[in-house]
């Protein structure tokens, strides 16, 4: 007599639930995640306080004799985005504060995603994952979501750090005609822009697999191409339109690059 074997149904919801459970459990157990959040929190505090202390000091190039005056931040929101000044000009330029502002988190999240994904392949855990997961899309969606959550938390941590740094350094919290709504919209647009970068980093990491160095270098290089647009799309005076644009852009990138990542996983060796 033939022995019948029944296989329980694995619908999309059940598969995603288990995949997300794996990734978020791993993320919250990962030391790197907490290090990055701590960095996101501490960088603005240190930068703001240090630059305020150095405000007005002059450094002289020993070779050319050219004097450079160091300008500290004038406003606590400078590390979040550019502010219009009383005379209408934009506050803040390409100085250290501008380079180490909140937008840096879009690049820092690359480190998390690259290590997070390459760990799956280096440890061999990918074998356990993909043996029971035929649909590679589940993996891509889950990694994008985990990266997005990590990136969003880093942005929030940086924002908190900026407020704390501003308060410690005694900076002005004046918004020069902008409102708190603009500030919230600015943060929301940055958060919703994160999936654009996350999907790029995920694709590069999935293609690089266990080669972490390749994933990190590729992601930083790829991220650089879009890095400059972040400050333009998400200024401090953001409105609902900016948020909408970021959501639309993220959706296009996440679905588009997500489909490419899925194909990469489907067509290449996973071990």
């Amino acid at each position: 007599m033939e022995v019948a074997v029944k296989f329980p149904k694995n619908n999309f919801g059940k598969r995603m639930k288990s995949m997300l459970k794996v990734d978020f459990r791993r993320m919250f157990k990962s030391r790197l995640f907490y290090i990055l959040i701590a960095c996101a929190l501490l960088i603005p505090i240190l930068m703001t306080v240090m630059m305020t202390m150095m405000d007005g000091s002059v450094s002289v190039d020993p070779q050319t004799g050219v004097e450079t005056v160091i300008h500290g931040p004038e406003n606590a929101w400078q590390s979040i985005g550019t502010l219009p000044t009383a005379d209408g000009a934009a506050m803040g330029g390409m100085d250290v504060m501008a380079m180490c502002n909140i937008n840096m988190m879009f690049m820092l999240v690359a480190v998390f995603i690259c290590l997070f994904i390459s760990d799956d392949f280096r440890s061999g855990y990918a074998k356990n994952l993909f043996t029971v997961r035929v649909k590679k899309g589940d993996y891509v969606i889950s990694k994008n979501l985990a990266g997005f959550v990590c990136g969003a938390l880093m942005l929030i941590a940086y924002f908190i750090g900026s407020v704390l740094g501003g308060a410690i350094a005694g900076l002005s919290f004046d918004l020069y005609g902008l409102t708190a709504v603009n500030l919230v919209m600015c943060m929301l647009s940055k958060i919703f822009l994160m999936p654009v970068f996350v999907s790029i980093f995920t694709l590069i990491s999935v293609a690089a697999k266990q080669k972490t160095w390749l994933a990190v270098c590729g992601s930083l290089g790829g991220g650089m191409l879009l890095f400059m647009m972040v400050s333009m799309i998400t200024p401090l005076g953001s409105t609902v339109l900016n948020v909408g644009l970021c959501i639309a852009g993220s959706a296009i990138f996440a679905f588009g690059l997500g489909a490419v990542s899925k194909q990469v996983l489907k067509k290449t060796s996973l071990v």
Binding site: V5, N10, G124, Y125, A126, K127, T131, V132, R133
Partner: peptide
């Protein structure tokens, strides 16, 4: 089990140990 190896339900019931156990060393 009579189905293509890409069948989601069948593959969900496959246990594997190939080359090395897929474990995270830090955990």
């Amino acid at each position: 089990y009579g189905k293509d190896y890409t069948d989601i339900d069948v593959r969900a019931r496959v246990g594997v140990l190939i080359e090395s156990p897929g474990c995270f060393p830090g955990l």
